[in-house]
Simulated assay, not measured.
Amino acid sequence: MVAAGLLALTATTVTAGCRAVSVDPAGGAAAGPGGLGGLSRSQGEQGDAEGAGTAETSDASGTSGTADTAGAAAGGRSAAGRDGGGSPSRTDSAGPEGGSGSGAAHPTAPDRRSGYAPAPGPVPAPGAHGVLVRELQARLAELKLFDHGPTGYYGSVTAAAVASFQGRSGLPRTGGTDSATWRALRDRTRQPTWTQLYPPTSRPVAAPDPRCLTGRVLCISKSSDTLAWMIDGRVISAMDVRFGAQYTPTREGAFRITFKSRHHVSTLYRTAMPYAMFFSGGQAVHYSADFAARGYHGASHGCVNVRDRTKIAALFAEVRTGDRVVVYK
């Protein structure tokens, strides 16, 4: 009986931690400890990954470090290889959709200080990458034909959006951007701004839940896969997030930050959870190297994963114990 009690106590204690769940080619989630698996979202949706992802390691003392993985060789962070979403970057990567790669900065990459000037030369084409593709995607987004943030890679999602525009404009639906298509698109849209070319999140931040409009709140939307750090109704910063798998869902509701752990290591899965901010039992907002490397081809075991290490480091420094967390659909 004593042994059973100790076992129950241990089971309760070690649940303060999350681990990534992989997606197999059949579309399900690979089973983790305890047989957990299955994603609550479409496997194929937004399969973007930062080319310069980091692998998180943990030393004997529990502090974490980073090991750079493929994608940093070009000297700078790479954007997503898939054109379904991406992070702000001055380097746009080429590669098959669903993968990532490193590439040299586009020769006409805009300068934030001087503003964006339209890139001269040929029109963007399928398979191309760079700021001109970002402009194409931003213009399509203005017409509600491209529902992700620009990535700089011209893949199948972009081609489908171009074909839709061509059909609407009475042009041949090829999915390729010829001179007539490019001219028609530019005539019907405005010149995109820097923020439109390099948005802070892959998808627009959702309208805040009413509970997010007062005080200091981490406003986390499952519909847009975004976290907005808000103070008195004003968005201070925003970032991409992902959530738990089907059988380990991220709890919804209003919570408070109970404690913070800069170099946290999961006691259940023995994996690093840097910049962890716990809000509901073992569920926390934290940086995920797996999310940074593989995007939405995985899920957590209930935590809210953030893939931008710089952003969550800044957020961790600002958030206080007791600040509110609202998770909503």
Rank of each mutant, 00 (worst) to 15 (best):
G295F: 01
L218T: 06
V325T: 06
L36P: 00
V2M: 06
V133W: 08
G84Q: 13
T310R: 13
H297C: 03
A73E: 11
S169D: 01
R324H: 12
A94S: 15
R262G: 02
T310P: 01
D48E: 12
S224V: 09
M230E: 04
S223H: 03
T271E: 05
Y269A: 04
E142M: 06
G322I: 13
Q166N: 00
T226H: 14
T248L: 02
T201R: 14
G51D: 14
G32H: 11
L197H: 12
P25A: 04
L227A: 09
Y116G: 04
D178K: 10
G37I: 06
E56K: 09
A16H: 14
C212W: 04
E45M: 10
G5M: 07
V326K: 05
A52L: 12
T13I: 11
A180C: 04
A254T: 14
G86E: 02
D24I: 07
Y153N: 05
A73Y: 02
E56G: 09
S114G: 04
K222Y: 11
A284V: 12
G38F: 15
G95Q: 06
G98H: 08
K329C: 01
I257Q: 14
S288D: 11
A206N: 06
A117P: 06
T226A: 13
R234Y: 08
E97W: 02
T91H: 12
H301K: 03
S237M: 15
K260R: 15
R183A: 11
Q43W: 13
R186D: 10
R112Y: 05
D290G: 02
G322L: 08
D225L: 09
T91A: 15
Q246K: 12
D323Y: 03
G65H: 07
G282K: 00
A238P: 12
L6Y: 05
E45H: 11
G170H: 12
G215M: 06
V217G: 02
G51C: 10
L315C: 04
A94R: 12
S300F: 10
L143H: 07
A8Y: 01
F243K: 01
T321G: 13
A276N: 14
M239G: 02
Q196W: 05
M230F: 01
G282L: 00
A254I: 13
F165S: 01
T193G: 15
R188M: 09
H106S: 12
S93I: 00
R320E: 10
S224C: 14
A49L: 05
V304A: 05
H286T: 15
P88M: 10
T13H: 13
S266F: 07
G244Q: 13
G38P: 08
A67M: 13
G76Y: 02
S202H: 07
P118K: 10
L213N: 11
L197N: 09
A20E: 05
A8H: 01
V217K: 15
A245T: 14
V285D: 03
L6D: 11
G149N: 03
R82F: 05
A180Y: 01
F146L: 06
A74K: 14
D209A: 12
A289E: 08
R324V: 01
S237F: 09
A128Y: 03
V217L: 01
S223M: 08
G95C: 12
L140T: 07
R262S: 00
V21P: 00
T201Y: 11
A128K: 02
P124G: 09
T310D: 15
